[in-house]
């Protein structure tokens, strides 16, 4: 029974038919695409290997040799805490704002204002982070002093606003706000694009049922854009986690772990700490800093994988 197909296959093989001809253009393009795909993996692996290699001495070292004198975990933990804290403040402030701005552009603003506004927001993304840092330290910090005092007076029972208020305004809260402004454009741009692609037939379906504009948005635009909002937030979170200069120049740091956002003692962030300390470090201190960089790498990796998982789940749910 199995003989017939076998012989026919053999015959085909001997005749040399099986592979269709491949055009040179096809071959070149597929080669280039494959090379690029492999290249990015090699690059990522290279970075990971470099970090591990350079961090290894610090991981192996005795606790008293690490800066701070109590071990690598104690060295990195406050920095990682500060990194995540600043980024979370930024996300909490930026995402609702970005979604609101995106909805204003796609659904509420007259077309000309919408176009101008989206252009201006795209421009915001092009401002170098050092400029945001300078703005934070020179303008926002002093300007936010009054607000921070108010927060301490009225919401002082919350651990976040326990005070005493920093007199310089160079606090974690200001850093969070600056980071929020920095990541606002990218989140807005991505969500706006997707909101605008909500099928017209779904928008009209909701309106024809007698939905108000806000109800239409809630029924169609937001569900349609949900995974985009999540992935845009993660893009923003990634940028906020890694942001160096703005944090380095604004924050007056003291290496503590505290949820108090408005006092003069603030945790630093991993990236800012590397930027500030690296030039004056040598020997094992450098390895310790690189180990903190490895921790940052791990944090961003986890954040991105979590985002991917959330998006996949949402896509399954919407099917």
């Amino acid at each position: 029974m199995s003989t017939t197909p076998t012989t026919s296959t053999d015959a085909a093989l001997t005749a040399g038919v099986p592979t269709p001809p491949r055009r040179p253009g096809d071959r070149i393009f597929s080669g280039a695409a494959t090379a690029a795909g492999i290249g990015i993996l090699v690059l990522l692996a290279g970075v990971a290997i470099f970090l591990l290699q350079e961090a290894w001495p610090a991981i192996k070292a005795a606790p008293e040799d690490i800066p701070g004198g109590t071990g690598l975990v104690d060295f990195i933990a406050p920095l990682a805490f500060g990194t995540v804290l600043g980024a979370v403040i930024a996300i909490v402030l930026a995402v609702p704002m970005a979604v609101a701005v995106a909805l204003f552009i796609t659904d509420y603003a007259p077309r000309r204002i919408a176009n101008t506004l989206s252009y201006v927001i795209d421009l915001l993304a092009a401002v170098p982070s050092i400029v945001y840092g300078l703005w934070g330290i020179a303008v926002l910090g002093p300007a936010a002093l009054g607000i921070q005092t108010w927060l301490a007076d009225h919401l002082g029972f919350l651990p976040f606003f326990a005070g005493p208020v920093s007199t310089t305004g160079r606090t974690m809260l200001v850093v969070g706000v600056v980071l929020a402004v920095m990541i606002l454009p990218i989140i807005t741009a991505v969500t706006r694009e997707v909101f605008a692609r909500t099928p017209r037939i779904h928008r009209e379906g909701a309106l024809a049922l007698g939905a108000t504009r806000w109800e239409m948005i809630r029924m169609t635009v937001l569900p349609f854009g949900r995974s985009a909002v999540i992935s845009a937030s993660m893009l923003g979170l990634g940028r906020a986690l890694g942001e160096t200069m703005a944090v380095a120049i604004i924050l007056s740091v003291s290496g503590v772990v505290t949820f108090n956002l408005i006092s003069s003692t603030n945790p630093s962030t991993i990236a800012a700490n590397i930027a500030l300390d690296f030039p004056e470090s040598s020997g094992l201190d450098v390895n310790a800093l690189i180990a903190s960089g490895l921790a940052l790498f791990a944090i961003t990796l986890v954040v991105n994988m979590a985002a991917r998982a959330v998006i996949t789940r949402n896509e399954d749910a919407s099917r």
Partner: peptide, 28 residues
Amino acid sequence: VAVRRQVGMVFQSPNPFPTMSIYENVVA
């Protein structure tokens, strides 16, 4: 909005809300 509640509409191609169940679509 009140007019559209009184005058229902069915469109050219079917447009149930994709994120809603059959039940939720009917009660939307």
